[in-house]
Amino acid sequence: EDEVKKIVKRLIENGVDDEQIKEIVKRQGVDERIVDKVLKELK
């Protein structure tokens, strides 16, 4: 989960929008619920 957080944070800093972040992270095989949780925490 910490790995996911790092990735998502980097994507947000690069101006990637939420939908794209979800797609990218899902392609890495991460559960969507984890992605949603991380996005909420970082906003």
Rank of each mutant, 00 (worst) to 15 (best):
residue 24 I to M: 10
residue 4 V to E: 01
residue 43 K to F: 08
residue 39 L to A: 01
residue 33 R to I: 10
residue 23 E to C: 07
residue 37 K to E: 06
residue 24 I to G: 01
residue 11 L to Q: 01
residue 35 V to W: 03
residue 19 E to H: 09
residue 1 E to M: 13
residue 31 D to Q: 07
residue 36 D to N: 11
residue 23 E to F: 08
residue 3 E to M: 12
residue 17 D to I: 07
residue 26 K to Q: 10
residue 27 R to P: 02
residue 10 R to M: 15
residue 34 I to T: 10
residue 9 K to T: 07
residue 15 G to N: 06
residue 13 E to V: 07
residue 30 V to A: 07
residue 39 L to W: 03
residue 35 V to G: 01
residue 12 I to P: 00
residue 5 K to H: 07
residue 10 R to S: 13
residue 5 K to A: 07
residue 26 K to R: 14
residue 10 R to Y: 15
residue 18 D to H: 11
residue 2 D to E: 14
residue 21 I to P: 00
residue 36 D to A: 12
residue 15 G to Y: 04
residue 37 K to P: 01
residue 37 K to W: 07
residue 5 K to N: 04
residue 22 K to F: 10
residue 20 Q to I: 12
residue 7 I to A: 06
residue 7 I to L: 15
residue 42 L to A: 05
residue 18 D to T: 12
residue 9 K to H: 08
residue 1 E to Y: 15
residue 25 V to C: 13
residue 14 N to G: 09
residue 6 K to V: 11
residue 35 V to C: 02
residue 43 K to V: 06
residue 24 I to C: 03
residue 34 I to A: 04
residue 21 I to A: 02
residue 24 I to A: 04
residue 32 E to W: 11
residue 4 V to W: 07
residue 30 V to M: 11
residue 36 D to L: 13
residue 39 L to E: 01
residue 31 D to P: 13
residue 12 I to L: 15
residue 38 V to S: 02
residue 28 Q to L: 15
residue 13 E to H: 08
residue 3 E to P: 05
residue 33 R to K: 13
residue 20 Q to C: 02
residue 43 K to E: 07
residue 31 D to R: 04
residue 20 Q to P: 01
residue 19 E to Y: 11
residue 2 D to K: 08
residue 6 K to D: 11
residue 13 E to S: 10
residue 38 V to T: 03
residue 7 I to V: 08
residue 41 E to D: 11
residue 10 R to V: 13
residue 5 K to D: 02
residue 43 K to C: 04
residue 4 V to H: 01
residue 11 L to H: 03
residue 38 V to P: 00
residue 25 V to W: 05
residue 13 E to D: 12
residue 3 E to I: 11
residue 22 K to C: 02
residue 42 L to P: 01
residue 9 K to S: 09
residue 26 K to E: 05
residue 12 I to C: 03
residue 4 V to Y: 03
residue 8 V to L: 06
residue 9 K to L: 14
residue 40 K to H: 12
residue 14 N to H: 11
residue 10 R to K: 14
residue 35 V to F: 07
residue 20 Q to E: 13
residue 26 K to W: 05
residue 2 D to V: 08
residue 3 E to T: 09
residue 39 L to C: 02
residue 22 K to S: 03
residue 12 I to G: 02
residue 17 D to M: 10
residue 6 K to Q: 13
residue 42 L to Y: 05
residue 9 K to G: 06
residue 43 K to Q: 10
residue 25 V to K: 00
residue 34 I to C: 02
residue 22 K to N: 02
residue 19 E to P: 05
residue 5 K to E: 05
residue 5 K to P: 02
residue 16 V to N: 08
residue 43 K to H: 13
residue 6 K to W: 10
residue 36 D to P: 01
residue 26 K to C: 10
residue 32 E to Q: 09
residue 10 R to A: 15
residue 36 D to Y: 06
residue 12 I to V: 08
residue 24 I to T: 05
residue 30 V to W: 15
residue 4 V to M: 05
residue 17 D to Y: 06
residue 32 E to F: 07
residue 19 E to V: 10
residue 10 R to I: 14
residue 11 L to W: 03
residue 31 D to S: 11
residue 29 G to Q: 03
residue 28 Q to V: 08
residue 5 K to R: 15
residue 8 V to P: 00
residue 3 E to F: 13
residue 5 K to T: 07
residue 4 V to N: 01
residue 25 V to S: 03
residue 40 K to T: 09
residue 23 E to Y: 08
residue 38 V to A: 05
residue 1 E to W: 15
residue 23 E to A: 13
residue 14 N to W: 13
residue 29 G to E: 02
residue 7 I to F: 12
residue 27 R to K: 13
residue 2 D to S: 10
residue 21 I to E: 00
residue 22 K to E: 02
residue 32 E to K: 06
residue 10 R to Q: 15
